[in-house]
Simulated scan of single mutants.
Amino acid sequence: MTTTVPALPAADPAPPPLPRTPRRGDRVALALLLAGTAALYLWDLGASGWPTPSTPLPRRPGP
């Protein structure tokens, strides 16, 4: 014996969710995160003996 299930009417698909727009606080937090990362990166390079971008490169003695 076979049982059949009546087909359900097609439901309207739900519209896709709207993308979340970044808030001002998100942008400020991202800017602070990037600035802090850059500062710590340059500070660590200076502490380990690497020149920072503002340090002129040493000149090699000429022949």
Rank of each mutant, 00 (worst) to 15 (best):
T2M: 11
T3A: 12
A31S: 05
T37Q: 00
P56C: 04
P61S: 13
P58M: 03
V28I: 11
P17E: 00
R20H: 07
P51R: 11
R20P: 10
P17N: 01
L45H: 04
T52V: 06
A10T: 01
L45Y: 08
R23T: 08
L18C: 00
P53S: 13
G36H: 07
P19H: 09
W43T: 03
T3M: 12
T3D: 07
P63M: 05
L8A: 11
R24T: 05
P16L: 10
P51L: 09
W43A: 15
G49F: 13
P19S: 07
P56A: 09
R24C: 08
A47W: 10
L33T: 05
V28W: 15
T37R: 01
L8P: 08
A47G: 06
V5S: 12
P6D: 05
P17R: 04
A14R: 00
P22K: 04
G36A: 06
A11P: 09
L40Q: 01
P17W: 04
G46R: 07
V28Y: 15
S54C: 13
L30M: 14
L40R: 02
L33C: 10
A11W: 12
P19T: 00
R60L: 15
A38N: 01
T21V: 08
S54M: 13
A14D: 00
V5N: 05
L45I: 07
A39N: 11
T21A: 13
D44E: 12
S54P: 03
T21P: 07
A29R: 09
R20E: 05
A7Q: 12
L40P: 01
G62M: 14
T21R: 10
A31M: 06
P6R: 07
R23G: 13
W43K: 06
T37H: 01
T4L: 14
T2K: 15
A11D: 04
L57V: 08
A29K: 07
P6K: 09
R59V: 11
L30P: 05
R23E: 08
P19I: 02
A35T: 01
A10D: 05
L32D: 10
D44H: 11
G25D: 05
T55S: 05
P9G: 01
P6W: 04
L34S: 06
R20W: 09
T21K: 06
L32N: 02
G46L: 15
R60Y: 13
W43H: 14
L57S: 04
P51Y: 03
L18Q: 00
R60A: 13
T2D: 13
G36C: 08
A10F: 15
A39V: 11
T2C: 15
L34E: 00
P19N: 03
T2I: 15
P56T: 00
M1D: 14
T37I: 12
A35E: 09
P56Y: 06
Y41P: 00
P63H: 03
D12Q: 12
P13V: 00
D26S: 10
G36S: 10
A7F: 14
A31L: 12
A35N: 04
L32Y: 06
P56F: 11
A38V: 08
P6N: 04
D26V: 02
P13H: 00
W50A: 08
P16E: 05
